[in-house]
Amino acid sequence: MTATAETQGAQMVTLRIWRGDANGGKFEDYSTPVTHGMVVLDAVHQVQATQATDLAVRWNCKAGKCGSCSAEINGRPALMCMTQLAHVLTDQPIVIEPMQAFPTIKDLVTDVSWNYEVKKRIKPFQPRKPDAPDGTWRMDQVDVDRVQEFRKCIECFLCQDVCHVLRDHHKHEEFIGPRFLVYVAALEMHPLDTADRLEDLKDRDGIGYCNITKCCTKVCPEHITITDNAIIPLKERVVDEYYDPIMRLWRLFVPKRTALPMVSS
C-alpha cells in the first residue's frame, strides 16, 4: 500500500502488521503519516481508522495502566501504547505481531483466557485476625514495600509471552508462568496472609521450570524485579520447606509453622 496524495509531505512510516486468525494469516504493509511523539498504538489506530476498519487490536487506557495492548514489536514483547515510534524506527518496516505464547483470535488479538483460569486455582488471600478491636490491621510501610512492588502488575502478560517455558515448550499445563509467580509472591509476602502455597508451587505450579533467565524482568513495563524479588525468594522457600535436610530434622521435633518467617507484623 502506498501513501495517499493528501499525506504527501508528512513523514511516513510503514507498519508490517500480521493479519489473520487461528487458521493462519500473513503480514500486510500499511503506510501512515508520523507525528511527533506518536506511539505504536497511535499508528495502528490511524491505519484502523483510515485503511483497515476491521483490524483487530485490543486496547483500553492508552497510558500503560491497563495492560491490554500487548504485542510484539520488531520481535520484542511490549505495550503498543508505551512504545514511541521514534524508538523503534529503522530503515525497515516496523513489524507488529500478536503475542506468540497464546492462541491467536484475530490480527493482534490473542486468547489470554488461560491466565484467568490459572489465577482462579491459586489459593486466595486469607488474612489473620484483625489487630485492633475495630476490625482493622496495622502494617508498617517497610513491610509492604515489596508486596506493593508486585501489586503494580497490570496483567499485560508480556512476561508470560517471553517466558520460554510457555512460549517455546508450551508447558501451560504444568507451569503458571512469571505473572502468577509474582501473584503468589504478593500473597505469600503479604504481612496479613496466613495461607500456605508452597506445596502448590512445588507440585502443581511448576516453579522448578523457571531457570532464571530473567527475560520476564526485562520486558516488564512496570519494571517489577520479577526474577530477583519474586521468583528466587519463592524458590528458596520451596527449597527450605522440602529439600533442606536440617530443616527436615528440625520439623521432626518442632510443629509446622503457621506463618512464614520473612513476614513481620
Binding site: 486466595p124 488471600f125 488474612p127 484483625p130 476490625g135 482493622t136 490491621w137 496495622r138 502494617m139 508498617d140 510501610q141 509492604v144 508486596v147 506493593q148 501489586r151 500473597l187 503479604h190 496472609d193
Partner: peptide, 19 residues
Amino acid sequence: VRELEAWGAVFDRTPDGKI
C-alpha cells in the same frame, strides 16, 4: 475501604501502621 484491606488491598501506611 476497610473491607478492601480485608480482601487483600495494600494501601500506603501511616507511621503507626494505619491506612
